[in-house]
């Protein structure tokens, strides 16, 4: 009698594939975002701005640096100047378009760098606990004791004007905020059973952080970081508005707002345009971040 015939056979291959095909967390988040009209709208605006920033050189209708004594401060719709001309007779539309590049760069870069450094610091403090945690977090508390606008202006004021110094100051402003969130999330995850189980099974601290902690803390930290981009955009342009960031003649929305400030009585609509761009960008980032937060179900 052949007994092997009655033994259970291995499961057919198709079933295994079905398990592998179950949607992951991120595709679920993406699907939720695609069903959210607000997120789609904000995302489309930001995508358009990013495309404009990348292909600015191909898209520009006129030379954004060409000045003209006779075309100074022309209104919106002036012949050859669809959005008017600035105080040196340069084409506003071209300058606003090229300005997307520096403005987005100055707004997003500090948050990105702070996300990497702040997460590392926060996860280290949260996972290590004890004395290391106390030392790191009390130092962070000191930077946290400054209102962010004041800290940014103090640092870039002391370091001096320039793009690099403005980026450095803004990064220092955001690191403590991100590190705080990273620390509190990591401290929560560290106490979970699966981390305890991993430790009991002999996993080293690096393995635990890489396999069990990172995947569970990066999501909430990322959501928090996206909510900072709008703040960062406003602050970065604000530094340029004060004359502490980008230097003329480079087009940047905050700097353009500053140089056009004297024109608010003669050409108010033209003078207000760069601010409209900052407003649109920051509101899109805020709306997208809010949608992301609810799609990922992260509590604020």
């Amino acid at each position: 009698m052949n007994t092997t015939a009655s033994l259970p056979l291995p499961q057919p291959r198709t079933k295994v594939e079905a398990i592998e095909r179950s949607p992951g967390f991120w595709s679920g988040v993406l699907a939720k975002l695609m069903r959210d009209p607000v997120a789609l709208g904000a995302g489309a605006v930001l995508l358009a701005l990013i495309v404009m920033a990348i292909f600015a050189n191909q898209l520009l209708p006129a030379d954004p640096y060409a000045t003209s004594m006779f075309k100074r401060l022309k209104p919106i719709g002036f012949e050859g100047y669809p959005l008017g001309a600035d105080e040196l007779g340069r084409d506003m539309l071209s300058r606003l378009m090229l300005g997307t590049r520096l403005s987005l760069f100055m707004g997003i870069t500090p948050v990105l760098i702070a996300f990497v450094i702040g997460s590392a610091i926060g996860i280290l403090a949260g996972y290590a606990g004890g004395l290391v945690n106390t030392l790191i977090m009390r130092t962070i508390d000191i930077l946290y004791a400054f209102p962010s606008v004041l800290l940014a202006i103090a640092l870039s004021g002391a370091l001096g004007a320039g793009i690099g110094n403005a980026l450095l100051s803004l990064t220092i402003v955001f690191i403590p905020q991100i590190a705080r969130v990273a620390e509190s999330v990591t401290t929560q995850v560290r106490g979970r059973d699966y981390v305890e189980a991993a430790r009991a099974s002999g996993a080293g601290p690096f393995t635990i952080v890489r396999v069990h902690v990172l995947g569970n803390v990066l999501g909430p930290i990322f959501v928090f970081a996206t909510s900072l981009i709008a703040v960062s955009m406003i602050l970065a342009s604000g530094l340029s508005f004060l004359g502490l960031g980008v230097r003329p003649p480079e087009p940047e929305w905050g700097l353009m707002l500053n140089t056009l400030r004297t024109a608010i009585y003669s050409q108010p609509l033209v003078a207000a345009l760069p601010g409209v761009m900052i407003f649109i960008t920051s509101i899109s980032f805020n709306l997208l971040s809010d949608s992301l937060r609810s799609a990922m179900d992260v509590k604020s």
């Binding site: 709008a230 406003i234 342009s237 604000g238 508005f241 905050g254 707002l257 400030r261 608010i264 009585y265 108010p268 003078a271 207000a272 760069p274 601010g275 409209v276 900052i278 407003f279 920051s282 509101i283 805020n286 709306l287 809010d290």
Partner: peptide, 23 residues
């Protein structure tokens, strides 16, 4: 409330000056 936290306040100041002082 979203508008309030998104607006660059230095620009809002300029717009208010344009509306209430200039016009």
């Amino acid at each position: 409330s979203v508008l309030g936290v998104s607006v660059p306040h230095y620009w809002l100041g300029m717009v208010l000056v344009i509306i209430f002082s200039s016009w």
